[in-house]
Design a protein around this nucleic acid. Structure first.
Lengths: 151, 151
DNA sequence: TTACAATAGATGTATCTACATCAAATGTAG
DNA sequence: CTACATTTGATGTAGATACATCTATTGTAA
């Protein structure tokens, strides 16, 4: 189904306008797909994102600042996501003794176990795009990178 | 700046995995850009989206269902967005006399005026991507359309 | 006509996002 | 050391999203 059909729009003013809407619409599609596949594990895409970052750091701790810098959506509120994950006992947080402004955040054994299960079943979720060739993926990445450069 | 630098990740597992993250990240970039440019007019991107749909229908009324079908994010709650826009007097809503389950929604003169001002200053917001050629935009659109096809 | 299904929309709840502001701790210039 | 700026994170508020559930209305088959 074309984008025009999916949002029931006759035509777009330009290829670039369609491009903008297409990027946003496809991002929603990917997010929804991940949300559904993560649902059995009781975590949301942003929570999954944070757990992945913490596993990458493991066993070193991370700080809220580090999470904020690496998260896809810089504006989202890492403090609150950390608190949510702490309640689920997927991470632990404690005040850093050397600099008491900071908090040290680590993924727990339970958190690692959940990520392992997700790995086993879904990998990086990229199997959902096996019908896209490496060449196509690279072409897409190049244009998207260029898209974010300001004029 | 490459995506790797922007989210401080060394490398991705595959071109397809980078593609997924790149689409989501770029969508956030576009959304933020539109949010900033719409801010002086006091409306958010989803509200702008609804006003655009209503202008396209004008002077015919739309229903909540029609808005839901055409919105980029099908899962968002059109009822509540309509109520927000009604409070701002950018739209009016009344119960459809023929089918009292439905509501008829129309953009007001004030709503049209605001859209006109936005048109004058920002067009379709696609001038933000003048550095992308038509050919690149079409290539991107083709791959994105393909991306959303299930395997 | 009377059940019952289908449709349209509203509402409740939890989560998330955007953004401003606050507080605590630390760094630094005088 | 003191005053002030900077850094780090938490919190308040408004809006948006995801999803389930509810109500009212209409369609439809017996």
């Amino acid at each position: 189904m074309t984008l025009e059909q999916e949002i029931q729009q006759k035509q777009f003013a330009s290829d670039r306008q369609k491009m903008m809407i297409n990027i946003i619409y496809t991002a929603g599609y990917i997010n929804q797909m991940m949300r559904e596949q993560l649902k059995p594990y009781g975590i949301s895409p942003p929570q999954y994102n944070i757990l992945r970052i913490l596993r990458g750091q493991h066993p070193k701790p991370a700080t809220v600042k580090l999470l904020t810098n690496r998260m896809l959506d810089k504006m989202s509120n890492a403090s609150r996501l950390v608190e949510t994950l702490r309640k689920k006992e997927l991470i632990i947080r404690k005040i850093c003794p050397n600099d008491r402004r900071r908090v040290e955040i680590k993924i727990t054994k339970l958190g690692l176990q959940i990520l392992s299960k997700i790995d086993a079943e879904h990998g990086n979720f990229d199997h959902n795009f096996d019908h896209i060739s490496d060449q196509e993926a690279r072409t897409l990445n190049n244009i998207l990178d260029k898209t974010r450069k300001s004029t």
